[in-house]
Design a binder for these strands. Structure first.
Lengths: 253, 253
DNA sequence: ATGGATGTTGCAGTAAGTGCAACGCCGCTG
DNA sequence: CAGCGGCGTTGCACTTACTGCAACATCCAT
């Protein structure tokens, strides 16, 4: 909508791939070097872009700080955190909290496993949306048509033999998840990792976030992990209660 | 330098404080509503801003993803991580990795304590620059005049009685740190928390990052923590070696 | 119904962004 | 060491694309 801003913002994903010099940026934007320079300077002033010693540009520190602050303003996260920690203490496994936002599901909190085998994931990282248990819960709650639209837009990477193969299978799975009120991912993302997840609901009953417990086969079998389901659901319900009860923490409506 | 972009980017920190509606944004930017609308729309298209159900704007998901990608492009982090984990396994305390960038020091990696008492800190969060052990190391390595300039620009919040009180004291401390090649923070940020830190150097000997081990008094005394210094330094040196050796991982110079 | 608040659109004026060309600064190389 | 080529930077004339306005749409509260 605004050309200048549009161009400037296009620089960010470009730099996310790795550092680039003025010429490269200008080329990839399709603008004159002087234009690119001015845009970069503006981004720089706002700290979104950093100029390293070899004069090339990189994404800047303010970006982290912003993402950080944004995260801390999410009240679900704040409320959920102590519950997640407690759950982790009682079962020892990795606990995740995720939300859905415009075709993406992302982790907004994580408590690491207390077993030596850790799984790779990072707060802020988009989730493997077609297979993750939390993603299924979040998408399952979308209105029918939107769910359908999203499902058909997605790619279905075959991470493992058990990954969701296509939109039809995914929609079927979502329907099942919606009815049973919980979800699993049994080796659909990483062959040896299983997850059990439960939804966190707002006052109106809509799913605002989802949480999961994940553990590799070498620690517990899928069946053993499933015995945790009641505990996971209870935790999620406790968070839902507190969240919809609107604890007087932040003044945001 | 570019007015439009400048205005658009000013929206981000504004929204970082919390969600805001169109009118508020327009007011705080000092522009007409229609202008603010167009800027917000552009930010929205790039996913930096999200429109929540009550029509108010929040920072968006792409921001997390960007910060994430930016972080993963930092090769120090990648190299250091396994070392940090190993250190954490051998001593059990919280381990941090931090870098300096334009008047800010920020954590770029963290391995949580294995003791029940956790300390608050988050990857991406700016560090208490006047007291943190890692900050001292990073600033101590700046060229004389720049160090001075930064020190004088800073605020010196009195977090505790042992916090660095002013620029003079800070510069003195930095000089000491520079000479001894390691740093501590003994209750300067949180009364009961101590840290020991060591620098990570690039091929040219300059400090590119710093790492620290932190533990609360209730777990180990400051003296006990100091006995870990040799281990911390050895770890930092190992990372330095690998970093300046330039392992053939990323193609970035 | 009516009023007010908030988000949205189309448009004319002009401010602000664009590309050009020229310059300065390196590092290479013959 | 002079000359060349690549890269970042600057000042400027041109005109594109951003701005603010005023009117409209929508929703909620009275």
């Amino acid at each position: 909508m605004s050309q200048t801003v549009d161009r400037a913002l296009s620089i960010l994903p470009l730099l996310a791939e790795g550092p680039a010099d003025l010429g490269q940026v200008a080329d990839r934007l399709g603008v004159h070097k002087s234009t690119a320079l001015r845009l970069l300077r503006t981004l720089h002033e706002h700290g979104l872009v950093y100029r390293q010693s070899d004069q090339r540009y990189r994404l800047g520190a303010r970006l982290f700080a912003l993402a950080q602050e944004a995260m801390e303003n999410l009240d679900v996260r704040e409320i959920a955190h102590p519950h997640l920690v407690r759950l982790n203490e009682s079962c020892g496994h990795t606990v995740h909290l995720a939300v859905y936002e415009e075709n993406e599901v992302l982790y907004i909190d994580k408590v690491d496993s207390r077993y030596p085998v850790r799984m790779y994931s990072r707060i802020g990282k988009p989730v493997a949306i077609t297979v993750a248990a939390v993603a299924k819960l979040l998408l399952a709650d979308l209105p029918e048509h939107e769910r359908r639209a999203v499902a058909e837009k997605l790619d279905y990477p075959a991470y493992t033999a058990r990954s969701t193969p296509d939109a039809t299978a995914f929609l079927r799975e979502l329907e099942k998840v919606r009815q049973q009120g919980w979800a699993t991912d049994l080796g659909g993302h990483e062959e040896s990792i299983n997850c059990v997840a439960a939804p966190i609901r707002g006052a109106d009953g809509r799913v605002v976030a989802a949480m999961s417990v994940s553990a590799p086969n070498v620690v517990v079998t899928a069946d053993e992990l499933l015995t945790l389901l009641p505990l996971v659901r209870r935790t999620a319900d406790a968070i839902s209660g507190e969240y919809s009860g609107r604890t007087p923490s932040k003044g945001t409506v």
